[in-house]
Design a protein around this nucleic acid. Structure first.
Lengths: 189, 189
DNA sequence: CCTAACATACCAACTGGTCTGTTTCTATTA
DNA sequence: TAATAGAAACAGACCAGTTGGTATGTTAGG
């Protein structure tokens, strides 16, 4: 089984979907970007575009979890790990103008109310991210309950900050979040 | 000058754009929802769909600012006002399953990198929201600088929480944010 | 030789947008 | 006040381009 074409399709369209959303990206655009024909696409994804998107979300899930987990195991406290993670986001944003590989807000807001499978895939992704935060917070000494709350708070504020970065064409919102989050962690410990 | 048709178009498509994003909403869908013809639409919006969207964003701006300002003038402290505001969002979400009139994340994430005019309109909207928070925080005694930071933090976490609500089909994320924000405000005062 | 992995022509449905009417309102003038 | 001119407010047919998807091929590898 030759996975190269399939992987190429997934990797390319993951980026495109993240940058532009679902409807904005046409099959022809994906095909051209991959230099692949429609026959090949429908061979690997018989159910078409939405199946491709969901596969992309699963793939993205693995990438994000791996990356964040690596950062979080590299640092002692949640505080340090979070700052390091946001730093990574900031650098990518300042380099590329977008954040691929960490966010999928375009897909959430566009598809959550339209397709249950897509909504579930997105939900699982957020859940996994929150779980990493949550475990580290518990290791920091937080109670089960407050760790869950804070993890959600972190996920939300980082996701929201990325939206603000997009509209402002500046990484400042993420920087502000990074500087405030430690205070929040201290105040609740 | 008869504004009824134009207003109807703006109000209807504002909701549709908020719920589904920009590309997902077709002109025909808007036209059918309004019971208006293409001729009428292009009479009021000669530059077509994008002009309609930007007009919707401006209209949304006024609505949001008016609503939030009303809530914030009704309460003494930022803490109380914020909780009251989030309560409004929670109630709407639990009633309708969506939050129209307060968020436009679908448009931001989809269009911010595609159209400068749209990005600017979205940026202005976030800026206005933050300004309301900021002023109230200053009235609470926060310094200019920290008021700005906290206002951004509030905007981001609320916006992010709404995304989480969408994926979870539950208002819990917003509730969590509402219960944590007061702690943050206390810890920084 | 059979199946996986393509390639390509084709399709109906729909997209945003234009063009040419027609109606309705309104201001002006005889 | 009635007639009329002109503009605003539509209505609806039409269009080229694109959409996601299919059907029927061909090619290459085990």
């Amino acid at each position: 089984m030759n996975m190269d074409t399939k992987s190429l399709l997934i990797d390319t369209s993951t980026i495109l979907f993240q940058q532009k959303g679902y409807k904005s990206v046409g099959l022809n655009e994906i095909l051209k970007a991959c230099n692949v024909t429609k026959g090949a696409l429908y061979h690997h994804f018989p159910n078409g575009k939405e199946e491709l998107l969901i596969t992309c979300l699963h793939s993205l899930n693995e990438v994000i979890i791996t990356d964040i987990e690596a950062i979080f195991s590299r640092h002692l406290s949640t505080k340090e790990a979070t700052i390091s993670m946001i730093d990574t986001l900031i650098h990518q944003f300042e380099k590329d103008g977008t954040i691929t590989g960490y966010t999928f807000s375009s897909i959430v807001s566009e598809m959550a109310t339209m397709s249950e499978p897509v909504r579930n895939a997105c939900g699982a992704l957020y859940e996994n991210i929150q779980n990493i935060y949550c475990k580290k917070l518990q290791a920091d000494g937080f109670s089960n309950e407050s760790a869950t709350s804070i993890a959600l708070f972190m996920t939300a504020s980082i996701e929201g900050a990325m939206m603000l970065c997009l509209t402002q064409k500046s990484a400042d919102p993420l920087k502000t979040i990074a500087s405030l989050l430690p205070n929040l962690l201290n105040s609740l410990q």
